[in-house]
Structure formats: structure tokens, C-alpha cells
């Protein structure tokens, strides 16, 4: 352990550009303790509680029909919201990164806005538009279209809360790449779509994958916004996070944490894949960083 050397500084006088080893280990210890207390312990709790009564009780949580319906609905919502945001993200980042135009900063700020809007407000605004007392609610009722308290409302609220995820990741990537490569391709006679597919996409694909992973995790895990527009109809409009809350409120704590552990597992897979990508392509990352 004492052999630890300052990261990437082999052969340099370590003492000058880093802290003493005692300070170093104190800082490392503090950081790890903080993370363990605030982040890891809650995660562990989920699994401990889920398995508090053994495997059978754990698995029983997933035999219920309502659980199946919640899983199905969550998958459907993510399957619509994530591709939507991927298409939007690519379109938006193309427009923003490849062109210079007036009002760009405002546009970027507006795309960011859903990040900082409270999830409750995100749900509320769709009630105000599509609810029976809302802007176009009466018209929807006349035409027999159900948006909120049904799948479309849940999808809309989910798209809203994950709206900036992909765009925000791709814009800096595309900006950094500039336009030279695309211009070259176009000069050589490639169509715009072809240039995008063969030049731009390979450049952004890992960033895209990252953002899809996080967008997906958030889409499947959103609680506040969805709870306002869902209506909590059992077996119909309950997503997994809402199902967690319902089980919790039915004193079915093991089942509640079991379903929660499914979502926590998804989070872990997301992080694992993301980190895996980072490690695997760390050489490219370093090359990229040195290039600037």
C-alpha cells in the first residue's frame, strides 16, 4: 500500500507536486468513508432488506401479476422515451454543434431546463395541459383520447425529465470534433446522411451509448413526475418505482425492497457497463485528452 505513487507521475519528484503520504491517505480515507456512508450503505441496505426473509420471499415479489404489469409498463415507457431522446439528442447536437447561429446559448439553456425543474412540476405541467380541467383537456375528452392517467402521459413525463440527457452529452462531443471531417466527406461527394453515418456517428458512438445508459436508468427510475400523472391504477399505470412505493405502503417491505433491488441492479449494470467502456477505451481517452 505504501508503494502508492502519485497518479501518472513516475520519475518526477513526487513530494513537490503532491501531498505528503500521510495527508494523502487521510484524504483517500475521508473520500472513501464519505462515499461508503452516503452512497454505498443505502445501496447495500436495499439488497439486505430485499433478502431479509430469504430467496423465496424475494422471488415471491416477482410472481405477482401487478409486478409483471409494472415491469412491462416500465419497459414500454423506456422503449419509447429513450429512442425519442436519442433522435432528439442527435438532431439537437447536430444543429447546435455543427452550425453557428444567433440565440444558440438560449436554446442550450432551454434544453437544459428540465434538469433543474422539480419532478413534481414536470408532472404538474402535463396535468395542466392534458387534464380534464387543462388547456386541451376538454377537447381530448370530446375525442375520447386519454393522455394523463394512461401510458401516453407517463411517457411524456418521462421524456420531459430525460429530455437533456442525450443532447447534453453529444453537444460537447460534436463541438470538439469540429466540422472538418464532415466537410471533407461532403467534398468527396458523400451525402449529408452518409457523412453523418460514416464520419460523425463513429466519433460520438461511445458518448451516445453512455447517454443512452443514463437516460434509460433515469427513464425507468423516475418517480416524482410519473406519480403525479399516473393515477396509480393497479396493473395498468403503475411503473416499477410506483410499485415499490405501493408495496411499501402495503407493509410488504420485503417485496418492496425486492422490486427496488431490481432497479438498483439496473443502476449497477448501468454503472458497470459505463465504467467498463471507460476502462476499455482509456487509451483512446488519453489520446483524446492529449490532443487538446
Amino acid at each position: 500500500m505504501s508503494k502508492a505513487i502519485p497518479h501518472g507521475d513516475i520519475g518526477r519528484p513526487a513530494s513537490v507536486v503532491t501531498e505528503g503520504s500521510r495527508v494523502r491517505w487521510l484524504l483517500i480515507g475521508t473520500a472513501i468513508a464519505f462515499l461508503a456512508l452516503f452512497l454505498v450503505l443505502p445501496l447495500v441496505t436495499v439488497f439486505v432488506q430485499a433478502f431479509a426473509k430469504g430467496w423465496e420471499a424475494y422471488l415471491a415479489a416477482f410472481t405477482e401479476q401487478d409486478a409483471h404489469a409494472a415491469i412491462r409498463l416500465t419497459l414500454i415507457v423506456a422503449a419509447i422515451a429513450v429512442p425519442f431522446n436519442v433522435v432528439f439528442g442527435i438532431m439537437a447536437s447536430w444543429a447546435i454543434a455543427k452550425f453557428e447561429f444567433a440565440g444558440k446559448n438560449l436554446l442550450v439553456t432551454l434544453i437544459d431546463l428540465p434538469f433543474s425543474v422539480s419532478p413534481v412540476v414536470s408532472g404538474l405541467i402535463y396535468v395542466l395541459v392534458f387534464g380534464a380541467q387543462g388547456l386541451i383537456g376538454p377537447w381530448l375528452i370530446e375525442h375520447d383520447i386519454q393522455i394523463i392517467f394512461a401510458v401516453p402521459g407517463i411517457v411524456l413525463a418521462t421524456i420531459f425529465v430525460t429530455f437533456p440527457f442525450v443532447a447534453r452529452q453529444l453537444i460537447p462531443l460534436m463541438q470538439e470534433q469540429g466540422t472538418a471531417e464532415e466537410e471533407a466527406a461532403l467534398t468527396l461527394g458523400a451525402s449529408g446522411w452518409h457523412a453523418f453515418r460514416t464520419v460523425t456517428l463513429p466519433n460520438i458512438r461511445w458518448g451516445l451509448l453512455y447517454s443512452v445508459l443514463l437516460c434509460n436508468a433515469r427513464a425507468m427510475g423516475e418517480f416524482g413526475a410519473v406519480s403525479v400523472v399516473s393515477g396509480h391504477i393497479r396493473g395498468l399505470t403503475n411503473t416499477l418505482p410506483l410499485h415499490v412505493e405501493i408495496l411499501y405502503n402495503e407493509y410488504n417491505f420485503v417485496a418492496s425492497f425486492a422490486v427496488a433491488s431490481l432497479l438498483a441492479g439496473l443502476a449497477l449494470v448501468t454503472l458497470a457497463v459505463k465504467s467498463g467502456l471507460e476502462w476499455r477505451y482509456s487509451a483512446d481517452i488519453a489520446a483524446g485528452a492529449r490532443g487538446h
Binding site: 500500500m1 502508492a4 505513487i5 502519485p6 497518479h7 503532491t18 494523502r24 484524504l27 483517500i28 473520500a31 472513501i32 462515499l35 452512497l39 454505498v40 443505502p42 445501496l43 436495499v46 419532478p119 443514463l214 436508468a217 433515469r218 425507468m220 427510475g221 423516475e222 418517480f223 416524482g224 416499477l240 418505482p241 410506483l242 415499490v244 412505493e245 427496488a260 432497479l263 438498483a264 439496473l266 443502476a267 449497477l268 448501468t270 454503472l271 458497470a272 459505463k274 465504467s275 476502462w279
Partner: peptide, 24 residues
Amino acid sequence: RYTFPGRKIVDAVVDLPFALPTAV
């Protein structure tokens, strides 16, 4: 700045709140 055993795992853990649903 520092290398220590498990650094990459600690690095990955930081993103947990991004991925973990708030209700959970």
C-alpha cells in the same frame, strides 16, 4: 491525483445517485 487499490470502483460508485431511482 492518487492511485490506490479500488480507485476505479470508487470512481464508478460516484455515479450511483444518477442511476439509482430516487424512490429506491
